[in-house]
Nucleic acid binder design. Structure first.
Lengths: 67, 67
DNA sequence: AAATAAAGTAAAGCATACTTTACTTTCGAA
DNA sequence: TTCGAAAGTAAAGTATGCTTTACTTTATTT
């Protein structure tokens, strides 16, 4: 699964810190998500999508081969 | 967070077993999700939503007060 | 009413999301 | 070119999603 968090964050000119605060997680979590170290939980995915004003499916790219 | 898994599953006349197999998790996982014991991961949420042919946001009800 | 399928509970164990702390690297401005 | 902000790495610890096994309860069908 890929995501467009960094892309959208930069488009909105927001720092990792600001995003982390806005959705109530640590900056580490944002870094790890952006760098593909793990996947967001459903709740976090929803919060970030909402923050960017998009649907979860627009923010996360579910490559259909994945299991 | 609430979800409409049981509701949609019954509407489609599918058993917990069939759904579990279709999205590749154990039956326990479906039971626990339906009974609100925990939240689905993003990947699982996507698979179930896809199985039912709806968007994640239609299947999961994110009550905005939650944290 | 008896048999079978479907749904549920319980609990131990593993995998992964997320936190915290501390330190390093990159980058844009003064 | 240096200084500070932003981004990144590493690693140990906690929380939670998911599995597995085994047994119980509720529905449905015959």
């Amino acid at each position: 699964m890929q995501n467009r968090i960094q892309e959208m964050r930069k488009a909105m000119r927001v720092t990792q810190n600001e995003l982390a605060d806005a959705v109530n997680v640590s900056r580490q979590t944002i870094i790890s998500l952006e760098n593909g170290r793990y996947n967001a939980s459903l709740v976090l995915a929803h919060k970030i999508a909402k923050y960017f004003g998009v649907a979860i499916e627009e923010l996360f790219v579910f490559d259909e081969e994945e299991e």
